[in-house]
Design a protein around this nucleic acid. Structure first.
Lengths: 238, 238
DNA sequence: GGCCATCTCGTACGGTGTACGGCAGTCGTA
DNA sequence: TACGACTGCCGTACACCGTACGAGATGGCC
């Protein structure tokens, strides 16, 4: 589905008209469907979500969903934006770097809570209210430093790119690591064995235990981006 | 498919044994399948790729593919790594920032050539030879600056995170823009109309034509990350 | 010739998204 | 009160998917 001849943005749920709201009773609603979808995704992942299972979870026949929602893709698009709403507004009283750090950290946590998120990130244009709200938050902080609008936009794009890229690959690796964070030694051994001569730098990474600290890795990267931004703002770091 | 009960990494093609190579003639091979898959993906996108169509393209019955390849996911994993091989080795004679710029620029171009790439990026652990080779290249440049291994790894992660994040969202937007780069004015109008009061900073971005220059945006972001890196290396920028 | 490994394929199963039309209930109007 | 129109729910059906299973074809080696 996700493609076919469907235009990725002109068919976006966010651009289509919503069905006129009813006066009478409900028993089912777009909101309930999206909520159930998020639960199902959190519990069983993207591949396990089907319209039939979703309907079952809601105690309803499969085709009933299609009154409230035009297509399965729409459900996913709505679910994506739904969780993006969990990032709160920025704290504009703190230093701009700290405000951004807070925002980005919350954003990253989303990927941990909803590990299906990276799988959707590349699929839809993010133009839902919560996605846009997040962008607005980031921009607000940056504009507050005195940066021009163009510079702020560029900085926001850079920041968000880093965090989505980082979180996506982080989740991918975390999916097959022990809770403590170390990867499974069994396949690490296979990997190292296979690549040792050809890729010595890559394989020798696996013995550096500092690198398993994902939080430190993230902070390091974020600090780096912020430091780079700073060379353009002239504002003091930290 | 992509999930089910499948473990994302222990079932990776790269960790499984390959079928012993044959002596006799071939008529079909893993390599041919992967090549055809990339062609099909380039031409019609991820959603349009099915094992049946792939088989048709190869002039073969659907189930014949399964001798050379364990599953459809494996095909996608192989296709992903295949195109990653298009990024050449780094030019170690240039300044380290320029070497990285070259590498990252090639990497970004991959996403333009193969727009299905972001859809796969979040799905599999990238442990194919070409993915690892790319990581090795980046590490080689960084280690060459005198950075420690840990610092180099961190820097590489930051860099790659930015580029994948940037390229993914870039492709998502590009998919529904005119070749010249401007987005479709029709839905822009809808978007602006809907969000004007709530998200003034976001909506006002659309009139800033400088922001349509994706290349400039990318260079800006990359420069920013490199500048941040530099504050740690002590090496001169540019 | 006989055997075995390699490779191709036909059939079939259980799943998917969703088009289409039917049906029950509610509401606005007369 | 009668009656359409509309809202919301759903049963059936279709085309398509990934792939398990086992049969058959082909070739090299003893």
């Amino acid at each position: 589905m996700a493609d076919k001849t469907r235009d990725p943005v002109l068919d976006s749920v966010w651009l289509a008209e919503r069905r006129p709201a009813s006066a009478g009773h409900v028993a089912l609603s777009r909101e309930a469907i999206v909520r159930a979808a998020v639960e199902e995704l959190d519990a069983h992942g993207l591949a396990a979500l089907s319209m039939r299972k979703l309907a079952t979870r809601l105690g309803v026949a499969p085709m009933s969903l299609y009154w409230h929602v035009p297509t399965k893709d729409a459900v996913l698009e709505l679910a994506l934006d739904e969780v993006l709403g969990e990032v709160g507004p920025p704290d504009l009283d703190r230093a701009w770097t700290d405000a951004l750090r807070g925002l980005m950290s919350h954003f990253r946590q989303l990927f941990h809570r909803h590990t299906w998120l990276p799988h959707l990130q590349g699929l839809y244009p993010n133009i839902g209210p919560n996605a846009v709200g997040l962008a607005e938050s980031v921009l607000a902080v940056l504009v507050g430093t005195g940066l021009s609008q163009v510079e702020s936009s560029r900085a926001a794009s850079t920041l968000m790119s880093f965090v989505t890229g980082f979180a996506s690959s982080e989740v991918r690796w975390a999916e097959q690591s022990s809770p403590a964070g170390q990867p499974d030694p069994a396949w690490i051994a296979v990997l190292v064995e296979r690549y040792r001569e050809r890729f010595p730098l890559f394989t020798s990474q696996f013995v550096l235990t500092e690198l398993w600290e994902a939080d430190a890795q993230f902070d390091h990267g974020l600090d780096c981006v912020l430091a780079g931004l700073e060379t353009r703002t002239g504002q003091p770091h930290r």
